[in-house]
Write a protein that binds this DNA or RNA. Structure first.
Ligand SMILES: NC(=O)c1ccc[n+]([C@@H]2O[C@H](COP(=O)([O-])OP(=O)(O)OC[C@H]3O[C@@H](n4cnc5c(N)ncnc54)[C@H](O)[C@@H]3O)[C@@H](O)[C@H]2O)c1
Ligand SMILES: NC(=O)c1ccc[n+]([C@@H]2O[C@H](COP(=O)([O-])OP(=O)(O)OC[C@H]3O[C@@H](n4cnc5c(N)ncnc54)[C@H](O)[C@@H]3O)[C@@H](O)[C@H]2O)c1
Lengths: 231, 231
DNA sequence: ATGACTTTGTGAACGCTTGCACAAAGTCGC
DNA sequence: GCGACTTTGTGCAAGCGTTCACAAAGTCAT
């Protein structure tokens, strides 16, 4: 086996992106009372190939038993540790509009390694009100007397996002999830992930158009983005 | 130049994922009255390297002018055409909860190639009510007497998502944007894109933990996910 | 204990993506 | 017109990610 110090540094980015997928599937299995699972079955439930699953898991170490499979609980714990979910990360949501309120109301944070500890807006009508049991504050309040936060979620209109990001970075936040469209300029060492609805829809539109074009020209061009059959 | 028939089939998937980025930047530039832009500047505003931008654009053809740059309006039109945004794609949102309502209220659909033509829920309390000027219907209603839809957006709880997806596929939808956590099993030829909040946060947590670990062990391990300096 | 069987873990091959280096093709001042 | 300068478009090489093929390592029935 590879030494711990080396393998820690060497988890490929693509693998990191799939670990949450596996963890989710394992959690579901655990809830169903299943204690052991083979890579083939776990891969199928995660939407990846079994070879890829095994290669991914091999980067965290050898937690499987040949001839049997993986212990659901043990593997889940290992992935959770690798992702840093043994502690609860404090999260702030900035922008209490439609989307921000939906996220605040969403129950999927707690119990999964995250806790919303602050809600922020700059509208005087909104600041001071209670949303989901938390009092909405301004960014200045958060910096001055708010709780420490590790992750910032931005759900303001696009023009405000860059300024909000700078303020978050100034108060020590180095992980940002941005729902506003557009690219954020941040210093080195700050991690920004963007979720953009328009981008996702436009990628779907591209493939949709290509499919229609292929059919209309009787071009036997196969798409095949997912080989699983429907039940 | 490469013949049209060949280049059409050959736009790499990674490029498709970035075209919406460029289109957004170009739209902003157009709104600011800027008519021409060099790859260096456009790349910077899109958060990619200029060589990558040029390579991406080269897959759609030669629309730049050497020594000058790209005509903003022309390039935007070309990208829009490539993405299939010259027509308006009819969209249905299934699941009128917090998230579904936020999406329905979101103005970023129309004018960008998409139009919400139907809203669906299965709660008798919700079906029949008006949301954003549209009357909420059931999936059965949509199949029987609703408008044709090309893209389905799923914002139901996770356990319902698979069934909803099957129903959408049965009525001809081949592009699905899924906000519910979990993998959807769909037949070949159906395109599913998943947006999962928990996944995004967990990826951020992984990097956050790695940064903290690196600092605490005085390991000069650089992160450097974005080289742009903040203004 | 043994042999048949199952499943993992991984080296190697392959394909896709990115980044480099540079020629080609234009503009602009004079 | 012409030379200096700017910027695009692209062949090529390096790096990354996925898939294949298979040995290694276990289980299980007998
Ligand atoms: N609603 C959606 O479904 C949806 C989908 C995709 C993307 N988005 C994006 O998410 C963002 C939010 O969308 P929304 O529909 O909730 O918008 P919204 O207008 O309902 O809410 C925006 C909120 O941000 C607050 N705000 C504005 N500037 C601020 C600042 N500088 N500091 C703190 N708070 C500030 C406003 O007071 C408001 O409460 C937008 O950028 C939108 O493009 C929304
Ligand atoms: N709210 C968020 O911020 C958020 C964030 C990330 C992911 N999600 C996911 O998005 C989904 C929706 O979240 P939400 O907070 O809006 O939930 P919600 O409970 O507020 O809304 C779900 C809606 O779906 C409807 N529904 C249930 N079964 C249905 C069916 N078979 N057909 C049609 N409609 C059905 C319900 O009646 C309800 O109106 C969930 O899967 C959630 O995990 C939500």
């Amino acid at each position: 086996m590879v030494p711990e110090s080396i393998r820690r540094a060497g988890v490929p980015e693509a693998t990191v992106g799939r670990l949450p997928l596996y963890l989710r599937a394992l959690t579901t299995l655990h809830d169903q009372g299943i204690t052991s699972i083979a890579s083939e079955e776990l891969a199928s439930r995660s939407g990846v190939r079994s070879t890829q699953l095994r290669k991914d898991l091999s980067h965290l170490g050898s937690y499987g038993v040949r001839g049997v499979g993986y212990d659901v609980e043990l593997l889940a714990a290992q992935i959770a540790q690798e992702l840093g979910l043994t502690q609860e990360w404090p999260v702030v949501i900035v922008g209490m509009g439609n989307l921000g309120r939906a996220l605040a109301a969403y129950g999927g944070f707690s119990g999964r390694g995250f806790r919303i500890v602050a809600l922020v807006d700059d509208d005087p009508e909104v600041v001071g009100t209670l949303v989901e049991g938390l009092r909405v504050m301004t960014l200045a309040d958060l910096a001055a007397k708010g709780p420490t936060v590790a992750i910032g979620v931005i759900t303001t209109p696009a023009p405000a996002a860059q300024t909000v990001a700078q303020n978050l970075v100034r108060m020590g936040v180095r992980s940002i999830l941005n729902f506003a469209p557009g690219h954020l300029n941040v210093p080195d060492g700050v991690d920004v992930r963007g979720v953009d609805l328009a981008t996702e829809l436009q990628i779907l539109a591209f493939h949709e158009q290509r499919r229609l074009l292929a059919v209309s020209t009787h071009d036997p061009l196969q798409e095949g983005t997912d080989s699983e059959a429907m039940g």
